[in-house]
């Protein structure tokens, strides 16, 4: 008899809400939503035990499109919200979703410290190298010579931010890059990211077909990385610093750092004991 192993089976659609996304047709974020729900189904996580946290931006709309618990906060602050939630409720599986502007510009400091702190979170960044919601401005990952924005008509002239290298240097415990053009692979990587303890960083190349139409070519440019996962952060960083940003589909780094837990003992101390210290 196998009846004792009655795991409830979930399908990807069980994790989708009935809201229709506001995204443009062809946006890469559709497949990211699919991959996330697919990953949750594969992990068979009861929807009420999962929370998706986001800030502001096109991709930050994801929580409302899922049927798990969601929190849609302010621009750039998804990681601290998720940190507080996970630390207060370690029983929950907490995902963070957002874009390159939200995560690496206005939220850049939180990104550094979330990597350092290594709370058991999975951070999925949909990187399209543009601010889409405000109609097409350069983001931290935009190349310096992109002249498509009225805000920076001559290009930004500044070097793009390297999220995975910075993530590694800051202490992220899991680093991967995937492409929105391969949702099956993406779902698999997200499963691994959720399973891996500590802070997992997944960069998704997710084209903005409206403000960066040239990104439609990404699906042809990306290639599956030919490297195997390493636990050597320096090695992973070297690979990342020499590639062109289009090696995808693999976990690049898995560290062994134990996740952050503030040192608090579950003692049976009472408030009365605290008060006694003030008594004369």
């Amino acid at each position: 008899m196998e009846s004792c192993a009655q795991t409830k089976k979930y399908a990807a659609k069980d994790y989708k809400s009935d809201l229709k996304p506001i995204w443009c047709p062809g946006c890469g974020d559709y497949t990211v939503l699919n991959a996330i729900t697919r990953a949750l189904a594969e992990l068979a996580l009861p929807p009420e035990e999962v929370a998706v946290v986001s800030g502001i931006g096109c991709s930050s709309r994801i929580p409302a499109y899922t049927s798990v618990y969601g929190f849609h906060g302010v621009h750039g602050r998804a990681l601290p919200v998720a940190t507080g939630l996970k630390l207060a409720r370690p029983d929950l599986t907490v995902l963070v979703t957002g874009g390159d502007g939200d995560g690496f510009s206005i939220g850049g400091n939180h990104f550094l410290h979330a990597c350092r702190r290594n709370v058991d979170l999975t951070y999925i960044v949909m990187d399209n190298q543009v601010y889409g919601m405000t109609k097409g401005q350069a983001s931290p990952t935009t190349s310096p010579d992109w002249e498509g924005s009225k805000l920076t008509p001559e290009g930004t002239g500044i070097n793009p931010f390297q999220p995975l290298v910075v993530g590694l240097a800051s202490g992220a415990n899991f680093v991967a890059r995937v492409s929105s053009s391969d949702p099956v692979n993406m779902a698999q990587i997200i499963v691994e990211a959720i399973r891996h303890p500590g802070f997992s960083l997944v960069q998704v190349l997710s084209p903005c077909v409206t403000f960066r139409p040239e990104q439609a070519e990404w699906r042809d440019i990306v290639r599956t990385a030919v490297v195997d996962v390493t636990d050597d952060a320096a090695r992973a960083a070297r690979r990342l610093m020499t590639d062109d940003g289009f090696n995808v589909g693999k976990v690049l780094y898995k560290g062994n750092r134990p996740p952050f837990r503030p040192e608090f003992e579950q003692t049976d101390g009472s408030v009365a004991e605290l008060e006694a210290r003030f008594a004369l």
Binding site: R89, L92, P262
Partner: peptide, 21 residues
Amino acid sequence: QLVQAEDELASINQIIGASYG
């Protein structure tokens, strides 16, 4: 538990997350 945050933007948002939890 008390967690030292990276800045005040983080501390207010951490407590929002914890309280939501």
